[in-house]
């Protein structure tokens, strides 16, 4: 299966800008389906970005983060061609990991 994580990491001098888009329903637990039954909460709880074995950005998310979440941040110290590791875990224990090349 294709990865649920799409990442663009661009180094510009010392600063690398990272944009990530993840495919996930992010069900809040407050929405009803067509039969009027509540769709149980299903959302990413932790999203982590690691560079060189060190966390550069960690997100703790609740169900109020939009479906197919997007996040953008920047960090210092990486170079073009380096690897950035991205992983998430949701409230049902599912997870996904990918590695992106910084361009």
């Amino acid at each position: 299966m294709a990865s649920t994580i799409r990442v663009r990491a661009t180094a510009n001098g010392d600063i690398t800008e990272v944009q990530a888009l993840i495919q996930h329903p992010m069900d809040s637990g407050f929405v009803k389906d067509s039969k009027g039954e509540l769709i149980p909460a299903h959302f990413i709880q932790e999203l982590k970005f690691e560079y060189n074995g060190k966390d550069v950005f960690v997100a703790d998310w609740g169900p109020a983060v939009s479906k197919d979440p997007y996040v953008k941040f920047s960090f210092k110290g990486a170079k073009k061609g380096d690897d950035l590791k991205i992983s998430w875990t949701d409230n049902k224990g599912a997870s996904d990991t990918t590695t992106a090349k910084i361009s």
């Binding site: 600063i15 809040s28 407050f30 060190k54 966390d55 550069v56 950005f57 960690v58 997100a59 703790d60 998310w61 609740g62 169900p63 109020a64 983060v65 939009s66 979440p69 997007y70 996040v71 953008k72 941040f73 920047s74 960090f75 210092k76 110290g77």
Partner: peptide
Amino acid sequence: NPNALAASYKIPEGTIPSVANRLK
């Protein structure tokens, strides 16, 4: 919102204190 906290981000040293995201 039903629960006020939407997202919390840890900013380690070396990461720029600037975050963009999308919330409900």
